[in-house]
C-alpha cells in the first residue's frame, strides 16, 4: 500500500469525529461511570458511597429475586432463540423456493420485526392472551369452553413472551434468505444427481454452507434476547409478574435502578450481564470451528 499524505488522514478523522464523539460521550463514559458505580451504593439523591464488592456478594449470595430473574432469562433465551432461528430459517427456505410474489411475502413476514420492540405490539400481545382475549375467544369458537389463564401461571406467562420473540423472526429471516440465495444451484444439482433426497440435501448442503450465517444470527439473537426489556415491562405492567414469572434480568435491573433507586446495585447487575454475554459469545466463536464451515478454508 502506498503512503498517504497527512491531509487525507485529517479528512478521515473529520468524518469519523461525530461518531467518535458520540461513542465516547454516550457509550464509553457512561460505561466507565457504571463500572465505578457498581462498587458503590448510590441512590441518586446523595453521592455514591464506595462499598467494594458488597453489591456482588449480595447479588450472588443473598438475593433470591436475582437468581429467579437469571433463571427466567435463561429459559427465555434457551427456548426463544433456537425457536426463532428455526422458524426464520423455515420461512426463508419457503421464500427461497417460491418465485412469484416473493417481495410481498417477504415484506409481510418482516412486518412483525419492524414493529419489533414497540410498545403497541406488547400491549396487543397482552390483550391477545388476556382471559377475554383473542386466543380464548378462538378456543371458545372451536368449542373449547375452558379459558386458558395465561397470566395466572408463571411458566405460561413466560411462554407468551417467548412466542412474541419467535413471532418477530423477520430480521434473521432476511439474513438467512440472503445466505440461501448465495448457495450455488450446482451443489443441489450435483447432490440430486448423486441421489440425495430433500432432507439429505438440507443437512449435507444447505446447513454447512449456511453455517457462518447461522453463527452470525445465533450470536446476534442471543445478545438481543438477553437484553429483552420492553415486552416484559409492558406485558407485566412493570411488575414482572405473576410470581416473578416474567421478571427478566433487564426488568429486574430496571426496577432496582428506577423504582428502588439502587443505581450501584443495578450497575453491578449490568456488568455481570455484560461479562456473561461476552463469555458466551467467546464460547460460540471458540466452538464454531467444529461446526461452522467456511468455504475459503476448504479450497
Amino acid at each position: 500500500m502506498k503512503f498517504r499524505p497527512k491531509q487525507d488522514n485529517l479528512a478521515g478523522y473529520a468524518f469519523i469525529a461525530p461518531f467518535i464523539a458520540g461513542f465516547l460521550m454516550f457509550t464509553i463514559i457512561p460505561m466507565l461511570a457504571s463500572l465505578y458505580l457498581s462498587f458503590t451504593s448510590y441512590d441518586l439523591f446523595s453521592s455514591p458511597q464506595w462499598i467494594g464488592l458488597d453489591n456482588f456478594t449480595e447479588m450472588f449470595t443473598n438475593d433470591e429475586k436475582y437468581w429467579s430473574s437469571v433463571k427466567v432469562t435463561l429459559i427465555y433465551v434457551l427456548a426463544g432463540v433456537p425457536l426463532r432461528l428455526a422458524f426464520a430459517l423455515f420461512i426463508a427456505m419457503q421464500l427461497n423456493r417460491a418465485s412469484r410474489g416473493v417481495g410481498l411475502y417477504r415484506t409481510l413476514f418482516y412486518l412483525p420485526s419492524i414493529l419489533g420492540g414497540s410498545v403497541a405490539v406488547a400491549i396487543m400481545w397482552r390483550n391477545i392472551f388476556g382471559n377475554e382475549g383473542m386466543i380464548n375467544a378462538l378456543l371458545f369458537f372451536v368449542g373449547i369452553d375452558k379459558q386458558i389463564l395465561w397470566y395466572q401461571d408463571p411458566m405460561k406467562a413466560l411462554w407468551t413472551l417467548i412466542l412474541l420473540a419467535v413471532w418477530q423472526f423477520g430480521s434473521s429471516m432476511l439474513i438467512f434468505l440472503a445466505g440461501l440465495k448465495n448457495i450455488p444451484k450446482d451443489y443441489y444439482e450435483a447432490a440430486s444427481v448423486d441421489g440425495a433426497n430433500a432432507v439429505q440435501q438440507f443437512f449435507k448442503v444447505t446447513l454447512p454452507l449456511l453455517s457462518p450465517i447461522i453463527l452470525f444470527n445465533l450470536v446476534m439473537q442471543t445478545i438481543a434476547a438477553f437484553m429483552t426489556f420492553t415486552p416484559a415491562y409492558i406485558i407485566s405492567k412493570g411488575e414482572g409478574g405473576p410470581l416473578d414469572g416474567t421478571l427478566l434480568y433487564s426488568l429486574y435491573l430496571f426496577q432496582k435502578a428506577f423504582s428502588f433507586f439502587q443505581m450501584g446495585y443495578a450497575s453491578a447487575m449490568a456488568w455481570v450481564m455484560l461479562l456473561f454475554v461476552a463469555l458466551l459469545t467467546f464460547v460460540f466463536f471458540k466452538t464454531s470451528k467444529y461446526w461452522v464451515h467456511y468455504e475459503s478454508k476448504g479450497e
Binding site: 457512561p30 452470525f216 446476534m220 450481564m273 459469545t281
Partner: peptide
C-alpha cells in the same frame, strides 16, 4: 463477522447502563 459483532455488542450492552 467478528468485527461487526464486537461493535454491535458493545453498543447494545451499553444501552443497559444508566
Amino acid at each position: 463477522v467478528y468485527a461487526a459483532l464486537s461493535c454491535m455488542m458493545t453498543f447494545s450492552i451499553a444501552a443497559c447502563s444508566s
